[in-house]
Design a protein around this nucleic acid. Structure first.
Lengths: 104, 104
DNA sequence: TATAAGTGAAACTATTTGGTTGCACAAACT
DNA sequence: AGTTTGTGCAACCAAATAGTTTCACTTATA
C-alpha cells in the first residue's frame, strides 16, 4: 500500500474533499453530501488522506471533524521548488536575451 | 483511462523521470539506464507523461529526445494557490494576533 | 544489402484502486 | 431500555495500473 501525498491527490474526489475542508472542518456525512458516491466511499478516501497526514481528525461527541493539514500541503510546494527554480532561471535568461537585443 | 497531471505525478518513477529531464532533454534509453525496470516500462511512463503534455518529444534521427514542459508543471502550482492563500491568511491572522498582544 | 541500434505498441499478468453492500459499535435521543 | 444517528471496517468486485515479454518499424552502420 503506497501512501504518499502525491498518490493521495491523484484522485479527483480526494482533491475535491481537500478543497472542501480547507476552509473549515467537516464531518464525513457532511462531506459525503457533496458527492454522488456513498458515505463509505468518502470514509475510505478520508482514511487515505489521514494516513498520509494530509487531513486531521477531531472527535466531538459521536461526530468526527476532518480538517486539512496545510503544513502537509506545503510538501507539494516544496517538491515544485526544483522546477520553479528552473522556470525562473529560464525567465531570467529570456530577460537577459531581450536586454541584449535592445542594446543592438 | 484517466490522464491528468495529478495522476501522472502520482507514480514515483514518473516523478523521477520528470526531475531527470527537467534540466536537459534525454532519450528513452538514457532515461531507462537510471532505473531498474525495462526500457519498455519507461517508454510507457513517457507515453503517459506525453499524453498529459507534461513532456515533449523531439525526434533527432532515430533518437527521440524527451524534455519537460515546464508550463504544464505550473498547473500544479496554480492548484496549490487556493491553499497558499489560506496559509498566508492564517499567517497574517497570527501576525495580527501577535501585534494585538504586544499592544496590551 | 545485411545487420545493429533506438524506439513504440500490443498482449498478457499480478497488484492496486475505487467503489459497493453489510456489518459492528458508541453516542445521543425518546 | 430501546431506537436513531454518526461513524469505521471487512469482504467482495470491476476496472485501472505498472510491469513484463514479444514483435514491428525505422534509421544508422558495416
Amino acid at each position: 500500500m503506497r501512501r504518499d501525498i502525491f498518490q493521495a491527490i491523484a484522485d479527483p474526489t480526494r482533491r475535491a474533499i481537500i478543497a472542501l475542508i480547507a476552509m473549515q472542518a467537516m464531518t464525513p456525512n457532511a462531506i459525503a453530501q457533496h458527492f454522488d458516491s456513498t458515505r463509505q466511499a468518502i470514509s475510505k478516501h478520508l482514511r487515505i488522506l489521514t494516513e498520509c497526514e494530509l487531513v486531521q481528525q477531531q472527535q466531538q461527541g459521536r461526530e468526527i471533524y476532518y480538517s486539512l493539514q496545510l503544513e502537509k500541503m506545503k510538501e507539494i510546494d516544496k517538491w515544485l521548488d526544483q522546477f520553479r527554480q528552473i522556470w525562473e532561471s529560464r525567465f531570467n535568461n529570456l530577460d537577459k536575451l531581450l536586454a541584449k537585443m535592445q542594446k543592438k
